[in-house]
Design a protein around this nucleic acid. Structure first.
Lengths: 341, 341
DNA sequence: ATGAAAGCGCTAACAT
DNA sequence: ATGTTAGCGCTTTCAT
């Protein structure tokens, strides 16, 4: 009792492979297969527990009916949240989703896109882990629809959807300044990814525009460890900050730990704001004001863009690079003190 | 300029498909392919940017060199954390990981396992979303190695690795009792999954063994919403609890919100403990004592079991069902008050 | 040391 | 209304 294939069914019903294939693919009507025959095939398929061998379909059709989703790290709630939303939306549209966690490693990301391409993937959504981008151009050359989210490159023809990182950072920095803060420290993540660079730019420009010196920028990854270490160092400075802008919630967590260890109160001793607006911000010892990214919108637009590109591979319609930036919003909580002038 | 296949390389080098294939698969030595020839093939492959078509390999070999990881929900940090650990461990061993988020839906889980099976997946790790288990038996019948983690079924021959849920709940309940608590409420998750049932049993038995009535059990899913709603209801009772045991960190978050809304302090007005030990527990307004699951151990053992099963498919060695339960530990923080007797 | 040829399971162009 | 056949890209047995 080997695996059931269409051949098994053909033998079983005394029909040809073609007819069986037609019935099973729903093209029966189109080829005027008799109702009788259809029933026979369907019944045999059910009885023999037939499931199509995707490798064969894939080889033949050069399509896999699945899309790849490549993320830097699932242990970061921001990414796992996006992953969850994107993946369910695609499944709802009949695509399988192959999710790959790169552990923030660029080689892993390159490998991931190659392995996806080798599987005749229908399309790829990627959140780039670093500066590497040639692998994305390669996908383009292979005519594999690809779009990037959250992070992106302006100098290659890959469409993207992301939060307007610059604006988010600029606005929240300016908000801190309006609250009377002048010594505002910025705890950054991976200094080589666009999202981080733009946020740092937003912070820097908001400071300068308001006639303030850029007080402090440090950090090297979007992790609690980085946030912790940098805050420890920051607090060694002769002049302590009155406010800290953490560029992600993971960084924030580390910063909070360091602040607690130093016995500093929020917002009494130091104000704190962050990026990403994770749900636990509402439950921290001091609820934390945050820049919220429109994650659901990002996911939905990404899906729309990718499915359009996939669909138009058949029609052959040309697409230009779409560059979509969505407005972030500030969610106000209680972590910011208004300083006396 | 079409896609490069071994045929392209064969034509290019004037060699046969066989020879090209041998070189590319590292069996060159075994077949005494001349060094000269090997170089030619390798060079052509590089120049033409050859990547093997996995669908073809898969069809031919009935192997995909990838494993499936099926989880209930990636937006739950406990699962996304496991997913991250398992997926990186497998990639390190040369397997691709196809990760599927089922949104806690049993149909989605069944569909996922079927779709994975249709891809000639080498093995599957699943965290079951509910009571459904026939799909796992089906995998077994198709000789696809499968093991479940975190949640499991004792009456089917699927191996599993999980935390000793019963013990975790029993111990922490008893700890609360020793601290003088008698009215302890239990906020449960999905009542139909083993992990939840066992935890509830642990709670219930700890109460009974210590001569206390089972005060309160309610809830229906491992979400903040459920935790919030149930806590709201719980606080309507004439007799309020002195302690709350949340069966997951997500439930805890909802409970905390409800407690805050009622103006209750932790641990002054009510003590709180939870399951899962997420990193943010250290940063809440009151750090929360928690049952920690040995997630890394679970992942590593799961990997060991699965790779063994995959390897022994070739050797044909028989495996019995492995049932592995790991001890949880209690991480003490500041959310539990010691009551006067 | 290298090649020819069969076949994995499926679809589709081309009969009839 | 149904069937024959070629071929997707690869591995492997069997020749030479």
């Amino acid at each position: 009792m080997e695996n059931t294939t269409i051949k098994t069914i053909a033998v079983h019903t005394g029909l040809s492979l073609t007819t069986v294939s037609r019935v099973l693919n729903g093209t029966a009507k189109q080829y005027r297969v008799s109702t009788r025959t259809q029933e026979k095939v369907l019944e045999a398929a059910r009885k023999l527990q037939y499931t199509p061998n995707q490798a064969a379909v894939n080889l033949r059709l050069k399509r896999s009916f699945s899309i790849g989703l490549v993320v830097p790290s699932l242990s970061n709630p921001f990414f796992s949240n996006i992953a969850s939303i994107v993946s369910s939306a695609f499944r709802a549209r009949g695509f399988s989703v192959i999710l790959i966690d790169c552990e923030e490693k660029e080689e892993a990301e390159v490998e991931a896109t190659q392995s996806l391409a080798a599987r005749n993937i229908d399309g790829i959504i990627v959140i780039p882990s670093g500066r590497t981008k040639t692998h994305l151009e390669l996908l383009l050359r292979k005519k594999i629809p690809v779009i990037s989210i959250d992070r992106y490159f302006d100098d290659i023809a890959v469409s993207y959807v992301a939060t307007h990182h610059y604006e988010g950072a600029y606005n929240i920095t300016e908000y801190l300044i309006r609250c009377g803060h002048q010594r505002i420290a910025c705890l950054q993540g991976n200094p080589f990814v666009v999202s981080n660079m733009l946020r740092v730019d937003g912070y820097t420009n908001a400071m300068r525009t308001n006639g303030l010196p850029v007080f402090y920028v440090a950090g090297n990854s979007f992790t609690a460890e980085s946030g912790y270490v940098e805050t420890k160092l920051l607090l060694q400075k002769a002049e302590r900050p009155t406010a800290i802008l953490a560029l992600s919630d993971t960084i924030l967590l580390g910063a909070l730990k360091a602040l607690a260890e130093e016995g500093l109160n929020i917002p009494g001793d130091v104000s704190v704001v962050t990026f990403d607006n994770s749900s636990y911000l509402d439950f921290l010892s001091c609820t934390v004001t945050s820049v919220a990214q429109p994650v659901t919108d990002i996911a939905n637009i990404a899906i729309k863009l990718l499915t359009d590109k996939i669909a138009s591979k058949t029609t052959g319609a040309k697409h230009q690079q779409e560059k979509i930036l969505l407005k972030p919003t500030i969610i106000h909580r209680r972590s910011v003190a208004v300083l006396p002038r």
